[in-house]
Simulated scan of single mutants.
Amino acid sequence: MTRLSVNLNKVAVLRNSRGGAEPDVLRAARTCLDAGAHGLTLHPRPDARHARADDVMALAALATARGVELNLEGNPFAAPRPGYPGFIALCREARPAQATLVPDDDGQITSDHGFDFARDRERLAPLITELRGFGCRVSLFADAGSAVESAAEAGADRIEIYTGPFAEAHAAGTPDDALAACADTARRASAAGLGVNAGHDLSQANLRDFVAAVPGVEEVSIGHALISEALYEGLDTTIRRYLTLLHPLRPLRAL
């Protein structure tokens, strides 16, 4: 069974755009778990533009209380700074079930590529060992077609296939080559002893095709599309509830 981990970064973005505490990341997390999500994901960045260190600790406590996994994503090479102790330090304190290492630069809007394993393997290996010492399963962000065997040599437990190119090709109506590359990468990862996760721009429009074609996907991490879809699919009910508050005696169409 492929498990769904919900990335809550976009809830934090909306909160931070206004200041204050709304929308509440912890309440959103509880709602996702109540709906049946298998786990929670956060990707705190050094500039704290969305998820913050306090969000990490709050979700770590919730995940422990609810018996679900927290997947913490981040660049282990990004330098600590005020408000951001560094990814390894966050994992040391929060003890997520899974640490997903991502090679994003500070200025990137979103993660858009995997590791160059030939270049980064030796630097990653001691960090993977340290993270596993905290009890974390370690996953490495990987481009489809990359040398994922080197991820296993570095000591990783899983890879997360970067699915952005697949999602773009699917939207254009030409997904076959991208799907084939993802499927081949998953097979090679499995042969190397790695588990397979996937994420980035997966959505209701493309998820079924992806999991049908790519073997052995253990977990998908979905945030941006899921939160966007929730806005559309939840607006009708919310508008009707506001109207009921304003006009309690006025008959409205059933919710």
Score class of each variant (00 low, 15 high):
residue 139 S to H: 09
residue 232 Y to G: 12
residue 67 G to T: 02
residue 105 D to P: 00
residue 241 R to I: 00
residue 198 A to L: 10
residue 6 V to L: 09
residue 79 A to G: 01
residue 240 R to C: 02
residue 116 D to L: 07
residue 230 A to R: 09
residue 225 A to F: 06
residue 40 L to D: 11
residue 130 E to L: 13
residue 148 V to D: 13
residue 206 N to E: 06
residue 253 R to H: 09
residue 153 E to C: 03
residue 143 D to G: 12
residue 197 N to P: 01
residue 86 G to T: 04
residue 153 E to G: 09
residue 193 G to C: 03
residue 132 R to W: 05
residue 7 N to G: 07
residue 188 R to D: 04
residue 146 S to P: 05
residue 134 F to I: 01
residue 60 A to N: 00
residue 207 L to H: 12
residue 84 Y to C: 00
residue 190 S to T: 15
residue 254 A to R: 15
residue 26 L to M: 03
residue 11 V to T: 13
residue 147 A to K: 12
residue 96 P to S: 04
residue 116 D to W: 07
residue 10 K to G: 04
residue 17 S to R: 14
residue 89 A to V: 02
residue 252 L to D: 07
residue 112 D to K: 10
residue 17 S to L: 15
residue 53 A to F: 02
residue 161 I to R: 00
residue 183 A to L: 04
residue 160 E to F: 14
residue 227 I to Q: 11
residue 136 C to I: 06
residue 217 V to R: 11
residue 182 C to W: 05
residue 107 G to N: 08
residue 237 T to R: 13
residue 96 P to G: 02
residue 118 A to D: 13
residue 209 D to M: 06
residue 31 T to E: 10
residue 245 L to W: 09
residue 153 E to W: 01
residue 113 H to C: 06
residue 163 T to K: 01
residue 93 E to R: 15
residue 42 L to K: 09
residue 232 Y to F: 14
residue 155 G to M: 04
residue 42 L to D: 08
residue 207 L to I: 14
residue 107 G to V: 02
residue 205 A to Q: 13
residue 144 A to C: 15
residue 242 Y to F: 14
residue 245 L to A: 12
residue 165 P to S: 08
residue 60 A to P: 01
residue 240 R to D: 07
residue 251 P to A: 07
residue 68 V to P: 03
residue 62 L to A: 02
residue 171 A to P: 06
residue 38 H to D: 15
residue 13 V to L: 15
residue 110 T to D: 06
residue 249 L to E: 15
residue 87 F to Y: 15
residue 6 V to T: 09
residue 25 V to K: 03
residue 162 Y to L: 06
residue 128 I to L: 11
residue 248 P to R: 08
residue 157 D to W: 11
residue 138 V to I: 07
residue 175 P to K: 01
residue 228 S to L: 11
residue 187 R to L: 07
residue 237 T to M: 04
residue 54 D to Y: 01
residue 178 A to T: 06
residue 207 L to N: 05
residue 50 H to M: 02
residue 215 P to F: 02
residue 59 L to S: 06
residue 240 R to E: 07
residue 61 A to T: 10
residue 8 L to N: 07
residue 49 R to N: 10
residue 229 E to K: 01
residue 181 A to Q: 12
residue 10 K to I: 04
residue 196 V to A: 05
residue 105 D to E: 13
residue 90 L to Q: 11
residue 102 V to C: 11
residue 53 A to S: 10
residue 225 A to Q: 14
residue 112 D to P: 00
residue 167 A to I: 08
residue 175 P to V: 02
residue 27 R to Y: 02
residue 60 A to T: 00
residue 30 R to P: 02
residue 180 A to L: 12
residue 205 A to N: 06
residue 140 L to W: 12
residue 146 S to Y: 04
residue 164 G to D: 11
residue 250 R to M: 14
residue 202 L to Q: 12
residue 5 S to W: 05
residue 99 A to W: 11
residue 106 D to F: 08
residue 95 R to Q: 15
residue 65 A to Q: 14
residue 15 R to F: 07
residue 198 A to P: 09
residue 109 I to A: 14
residue 69 E to R: 10
residue 124 L to Q: 10
residue 109 I to T: 14
residue 76 P to R: 01
residue 209 D to A: 15
residue 32 C to T: 09
residue 74 G to Q: 00
residue 191 A to M: 02
residue 175 P to G: 05
residue 20 G to A: 04
residue 193 G to V: 06
residue 226 L to S: 00
residue 170 H to C: 12
residue 29 A to F: 03
